[in-house]
Design a protein around this nucleic acid. Structure first.
Lengths: 189, 189
DNA sequence: CCTACCGATCGGTAGG
DNA sequence: CCTACCGATCGGTAGG
């Protein structure tokens, strides 16, 4: 057993926060998961709140990265919406704990970190909004479609995924991406 | 200042749980909100977990009631989907704290209560599923529409509402109901 | 509903 | 990363 890294601690915190919530997790709980004492965590991080910040910012970063990748192509607005959806679902499934903590515990961030995370979130949502907006301008989406509302609707569907979707179940990843894409695209038309 | 009722305590708990989470709320916090001591709460209820159960079951009950009302008409499947959406949004806005606690703190319920609440939730979702299913059978919705998935998508949009929608803002209640209904209906067609 | 209190647990620190 | 510990706060109770 070699010494744990800071990333190990943050990953463990993500798992605990995602399943038990920030306030439902004690430093001793977290230490138990990691095989060390709660007090030993303080040799890696400054405190519990610092761990929440690290987990949430990691989660937010994954989403922004995925959006940047999707936007980096010259795909049509329709295809780009598909890619944004696929990217979001990829993050949700590949980084479940960080994604979920980002989505559910952001309210418990100290005000400074919360502002920072909300700015990141706005950047991310802007990728959806501008793509949908481009589709409206290109007449491929409805003229009276409000990109802001449509973005919220699509992200609402996406963010709820981790509460019910099981990748080992009937629908594989491609199937759920396509089904949600079809539902969303219909709403945009 | 007359003695508080059990309902007052449960309402106060709903407000606190909705904003700070179950684990982020202490009995003393709750007492402060109510103008009594934390220990005084125990003359009304058996404990903190009992309060969570009461709040969550109240929230769940409102939704089931709304669904029953919507289903009690002989409206077309399309109109009934509209009414179910309107009913859900009504509960969300008229009973924000209970609805939110029901949606976000259900994981912290003891296993017995959690099972009960999940059964109630399933009954509620069945109202959406069967209505959509009837629409598919009547050829008003797409033949390859999966009522189970469509229900999840619509409820995802609905449940995310309380995190961003402000009734005092640009969109009044009727407008948001209609906009979500249109988006959802398009996805069903 | 308050006074007075309980043991357990909390986040966190000093020193090694 | 552990030992040993701190003061604060936790959910909850006895008795009035």
């Amino acid at each position: 057993m070699t010494r744990l890294s800071r990333d190990d601690i943050v990953a463990g915190a993500g798992k605990r926060f995602a399943t038990h919530g920030y306030h439902g997790t004690s430093m001793r709980d977290l230490g138990d998961d990691l095989g060390i004492l709660g007090s030993s965590i303080y040799s890696h991080v400054g405190g519990k709140q610092e761990l929440l910040v690290a987990v949430v910012e990691r989660g937010a970063g994954f989403f922004v990265e995925a959006a940047r990748d999707a936007m980096a192509t010259d795909a049509s607005p329709e295809d780009m919406v598909h890619d944004l959806i696929a990217g979001h679902i990829g993050v949700l499934l590949d980084h479940r704990h960080e994604a979920r903590t980002y989505l559910t515990e952001v309210d418990f961030l100290d005000p400074v970190a919360q502002q920072r995370v909300n700015d990141i979130r706005d950047t991310y949502e802007e990728a959806f909004r501008s793509t949908i907006s481009a589709g409206v301008d290109a007449d491929v989406f409805r003229k009276d479609c409000d990109p802001r509302l449509a973005t919220i609707y699509i992200l609402s569907i996406l963010n709820a995924l981790d509460r019910w979707y099981d990748e080992a179940g009937r629908l594989d990843r491609e199937a759920i991406v396509n089904d949600i894409y079809r539902f969303a695209r219909a709403g945009l038309k």
